[in-house]
Every structure is written in C-alpha cells, then in structure tokens.
Nucleic acid binder design. Structure first.
Lengths: 251, 251
DNA sequence: GTTTATCGTTCACTATATGTGAACATCGTT
DNA sequence: AACGATGTTCACATATAGTGAACGATAAAC
C-alpha cells in the first residue's frame, strides 16, 4: 500500500516552502531546500506554472505563488459554514469587551484562526488569520487540544515545543497538567506564554457528537485584561456554550 | 522537452475542479471528471490530504478543499504590493461616485478582481473577488486585453466566447474592433455585455516598461451610471493615469 | 428483508513518466 | 576577461504512476 505520489507530494511541499520564506524563490534555492535536483525542481515549477499555482517574474527569473491559490483559498473560506455561524458571536464579544475576539479551528496537527474581530483600543494586540500554529501554542488551541483523544494529545506533546517566550511551557508533563486543568475548569486563562504582556481567555466549542470542533478566545494586553478577568471568562464560556448548543451539543 | 509532470498536473486540475462544483466531491465523480481511474484518483487524494490540500469528511467519505490552500492564498494576497498601492485610489473613487470601484489584474489567459470597494446604495451591483474570468468578458478586462500583444489577443479571441447575455459579443471580428476603439479612446464604457442593466467604465494601468499591468473600473446600474457617464469616465481615466505615473510610466 | 447498484478502498502488475547528473546558456560580479 | 552563480535543457535508467479488477460497505429499490 504505497499510495503517496512522490511528485505530487514534492509539489505540495514546494508550495508550502513559500509560507516561511521570501516572496520569490529561485530554482537552485528550492533545489537545496527540497533536496532534489535542479532539473526536477524546474519541471515541477513549469508544471505548477502552467496551472497558475506558481508564477515566474520575467525580470529576475524567480518564482512566487500564483493567483490560482488565491482563488482556491477564497473557495475554502466560502465553504466553511461555521465561521459565518460564529461571526455574530465574536462580533458581540468584541463589541462588549472592546478586545480582540477570535474563532479558532483545528486542522490536522495544527490550529488556525479563521475569523477575528480586532480591538478598537489604540494599544491592542493582533493575530494573523489563516496561518497555522501548533496546538500547544495558544490558549485558543490548547482548549481544543485538551478535549482531543489521548493518542492525539500524546502525538502532539511528543514533539519538542517552540519556546516563544521565557515563560513558554517546554515540559510535556507540565503541559499535560495544564490540559487536565482546562478539562476541569472548562476554559483557560494564560499570560506571557506566547507573547509577553498578552493575556488570553479561551473556551472550546463542541459539535453534536460531543467532539471538540473549535474555540473562541479573547486576547489583549494583560493590564487591561486583568481588570475584568473573571467577568470576561464567564462571557467567553457562555458564548461557547451557546454555540455548542447551536451545533446540537447536549450538556 | 517533456517538462510537464502528469501526476502534478492532474492534482492541480483536480483541485481546480472544486471551483466550479459542489463543496464536496467523491472519488467516482472525480474519476469521471478527470478521466482517470478511481484508484489513481484515490492516490491523488490521499497524497493531497496528507499535505492539507484536501480533507475528507469522515461522515460521508466525500472530499473537499483543505485549509492549507487558504493559508497559501492568504500568502499570495499578502505578496502583491500593488493592491495596497491601488487601494487608496479605488477608495477615493468609490467615495466620490458611491458606486462599485474595482481593481483588476491579468494572470495568464484570465482576469481577476483582486480588490474592490462596494457601493453603499441600496440598489447595487457586486462582483466576486479572487475569481478568474475570461479577458473578453468585462470592460475591466477588455481594457487590459486591448493593450496586450497581438499574438496574445489572437490567442484569446480564437476561443469561443461565452454568451452571458443576449447582447454579449460573440464575433471575434467585432471584439477586435471594440479593442481598437479602446486603444483609440483610452477607456471603455459598456452596458449589458455581461449583466443586463449593468454599465461599466474601465481604464488601463501601465507599468514602467509601458506594458499593461491592471485596470480600474467603476460598475453600477445603468440608469444611475448614465447620469454622470462622461464625468465619471474622466475620473476613472485620471485615476489610472495617476497610478500609471506612480508605476513609473511616462506618457 | 433481500437484492441491486454505487460508493470508497485496496492490490499486483506493467508501461511510463520521473528524477538524475552533466552540459549549456545567461547573467552580474570580480 | 574570467569567474561564479544562476535558470534551462537533455538522454537515460529506475522507480513509480495509473490500470482494471476485486473487495467491503453503504444506501436505494423491490
């Protein structure tokens, strides 16, 4: 059962290389990063270019991501119903608290914000939508991870953690205890774990089958957040519980 | 010189099938659409799924586009500088005219709106951003096509035209004359060619090398548009000329 | 409740497409 | 002018992609 097509896999990896690199990349550079010959990379690029997934800058011969990806990405956004479903809720949350309200989903081994309403305060924190990050990294993703299967949790925690700040958790056991505490409380409040001076409050959303599906979080500067911490934790939890019920989840 | 990788090409075509189809597609359906065996399609899907380009709905086993495409599409949007460059201009245009103002680019054989400011009138027309359409289809794309190379124009006009309305141009010769008129005037005003009761005004933007790079258009209900037609054509042309100069284009 | 049709998945096999590595052309720098 | 780097092309041998049939599961039809 060898069902992975190597050339297709290579082309996917190639495209994803652009996510954490310069806007434009050259053949030799890609060849080194992918560890395949220049000729092969060139064929990949020609093929992807003919499909609009890649485009070449005629001036410097370098390659960048093509507009077909933008077209497909827009289609993905149009597809997912629950972002539209959750939008009124995070809007209401943001209006009420004046802080950044986010809707976060799990996809494979990663998390991703797929909707957000930004804070209107002059001093504010912001996140990047449609960008993957590890499940252990933020309160928004940890409240999802906490309700995943034990195997899933073990798999995620078996990889080394990126230390975003001096306060980031790096010990798997400590993380496990934190996840247990999330299951006990039903939400999480965390500070300085990914960004110094930033506090997040997050709670999970469950679907009709009782499986965790997404989360909602409130993020902002710690000094402002601490003024209403308990009240806002309540508000976030009530919001997610309402959404879970909308999804058909029974307490 | 066989430099097209068939499996990569197939995977790209497969992904693009979702653009004009249901949200979810099955293996057999895709097999018929792609004209390759079910087993091969399955391998393609497994590979794409392992990279996050496709995801399978566990309930009905059907496949849909994955979030990695959203991630890549967002990166494409972040990359292109000129949309941000043009944004103030179309914003100003929309504020002044109260109609839909669009920024349109050419990519390969297609056109695409990559930015727009919508009209605030209760009765208004709208377009879909980040969606390909043929170069001959709208005034926004025709003013680009008009300044393309003769070979490019011939190639585009050699394919049969889609008849969006009873008034749509279907004769290549008639289209050529229209393009000639665009080059003569420097802009185009068109009505009912793609949508009945809708009028568009468009003018091209040139880069430093004098090559056509994009266009700006103003679109709205014909009855409202006709009240200020000449004045607004002037305004659009002035906007594009200003942007062309910003790009380094010399008259 | 049984049959039928259709679906997604798996498998062994062969033709074929793929990746290699070297040679080439082109550019900017030294 | 020589160099080093680039992107591009090519012929070839090997690994691989696509076939077509069989499987099990599911849902519709009788």
């Amino acid at each position: 059962m060898r069902s992975i097509l190597t050339s297709v896999q290579k082309s996917c990896t190639l495209l994803k290389l652009f996510l954490n690199a310069e806007k434009e990349l050259g053949v030799s550079d890609l060849s080194r990063k992918l560890q395949i010959s220049k000729g092969a990379v060139h064929k990949l690029l020609i093929t992807l270019e003919s499909e609009g997934f890649i485009k070449q800058n005629p001036n410097n011969k370098l390659y960048s991501l093509g507009y077909t990806l933008l077209e497909l990405g827009t289609k993905v956004k149009d597809n997912h119903d629950w972002a539209e479903f959750a939008k009124p809720s995070i809007q209401k949350l943001a209006d009420y608290t004046k802080e950044l309200a986010c809707f976060c989903i799990i996809d494979g081994q990663d998390a991703m914000y797929i909707d957000k309403i930004e804070s209107q305060y002059p001093i504010r924190f912001n996140v990047e939508a449609y960008r993957r990050f590890p499940l252990y990294a933020t309160s928004a993703s940890r409240v999802i991870l906490a309700y995943c299967s034990p195997e899933m949790i073990d798999q995620v925690l078996s990889q080394p953690f990126k230390q975003y700040t001096p306060y980031s958790i790096t010990d798997p056991e400590e993380m496990k205890q934190r996840l247990a505490k999330i299951r006990q409380l039903g939400y999480e409040i965390s500070s300085n774990l990914r960004n110094i001076g930033v506090t997040g409050i997050a709670a999970p959303i469950f679907d009709a089958e009782g499986k965790v599906a997404a989360s909602i979080s409130l993020i902002g500067p710690t000094d402002r957040m601490t003024q209403n911490l308990d009240h806002w934790a309540d508000t976030v939890v009530q919001t997610t519980q309402k959404l879970s019920r909308h999804f058909g989840y029974k307490l």
